[in-house]
Nucleic acid binder design. Sequence first.
DNA 1: TGACTATGACTGACCAGTCAGTCATAAATG
DNA 2: CATTTATGACTGACTGGTCAGTCATAGTCA
Lengths: 229, 229
Amino acid sequence: MTKEPTKAATPTAARADAKGRAPADAAPASNRATRAAERRSAIVEAAMEEFIARGFAATRLDDIARRAGVAKGTIYLHFKDKESMFEELVRTVIVPVVAKLNALPPPTGSVRDLVEAFAGNFLREVIGTRRGDLVRLIVAEGPRFPSVADFYYREVVSRGIAGMRALIELGIARGEIREKNLARYPQILVAPAMIAVIWQSLFARHAPLDAQDMLRVHLDLIFGERRTT
Amino acid sequence: MTKEPTKAATPTAARADAKGRAPADAAPASNRATRAAERRSAIVEAAMEEFIARGFAATRLDDIARRAGVAKGTIYLHFKDKESMFEELVRTVIVPVVAKLNALPPPTGSVRDLVEAFAGNFLREVIGTRRGDLVRLIVAEGPRFPSVADFYYREVVSRGIAGMRALIELGIARGEIREKNLARYPQILVAPAMIAVIWQSLFARHAPLDAQDMLRVHLDLIFGERRTT
DNA sequence: TGACTATGACTGACCAGTCAGTCATAAATG
DNA sequence: CATTTATGACTGACTGGTCAGTCATAGTCA
């Protein structure tokens, strides 16, 4: 364009270096479709990073593009606009989570063990990770993106609540859980975990929180003092 | 502005009507200081409304000014810039809350009653009110405004946690609370309340949550099944 | 297989709109 | 009338979105 139409000299390999970065260009990228998919996921990754760090409104598409090693225009080949990019991004990142939720192990062992394993896993995979930040992001932007909040509720929250409820009812049936009303509010079961997520991102440096240990105490509250040990 | 530059005719009284609203202009406003204070609080009120609705970055100062019934320039007579306005705003709104926290009633009656009264009050005054939205706002913008997060932690969270801990220890001493480790994590006590705040602003229309009732169940968990009734 | 063409993914300069912050002017005050 | 306070038009910087042009790759043909 205006720049230097004479740059026709640009050889094959030089191109990647010409831009700021060479992303995951290790593989020569077989066909177009593959490359496109790679681009897209690079954009998603970069966008998540930026949105988490700055929030929706304050994030610049230029920054996303630079971080993804892509020109700004490329973003618009994959997403309609900033808004729908945000929405699709959340969907994309959430999907694997949903998959995991659906693959709940069959109820074996004590309910307490089940819940402990499940929640322990949750903490490990969410607290202090990108995923945890995503949760905060959804809390932050949800009210301005009803479709995101809806999606998140439908795909994650309602399923999670249902699963928890089933577990609680099992625990009640087996006599492990005394408080029958708990089945009405499975939220109580996960509340400390949610708090831990938020706490970490806001107050960790003032007063770090041992989420794992807090969870143990909370479960003692529900199941009674620690069973064996 | 763009409207009609010829409105130079605007007489004294007409001014208030000229803009969208006439705030608390009933009183002729005695001295300057009073008027200034009124202006300031009108700005704070309007700003809170806008920030809650749109978040920091997406909020326009023009909108705040219009809502406050004030010219944009006036804002800059009270605040250095948008950022420090946000910070001061949070401080201003939080202060009364701190005052209430400090005025905790002396420990009389059962601890359960105390906690129930306290938490009930909390729910009534926070859930579904502007204050609840403010909490969400702090969660949302906190990471980008460390000074706000710090302030909130210092003035509200740490005090609240300390108060809760004292209450829990009292409950343990009196034998009302069995789980001794709870004193290590007062967060557990308030977790459901926090969850309720967030739930209301995100998922209320999908599945309204009876926060009051949920809280009761949670307290049953901590204090054992309902004592008298 | 090697040369030649068609395709469309990709680029980035550009534009139009937006908004935080300023300041010359006007109004109110005492 | 001098001083303090308020106004809102204006500016300059910034950013979401566009599009004419480029070029590596896939496809075609001899």
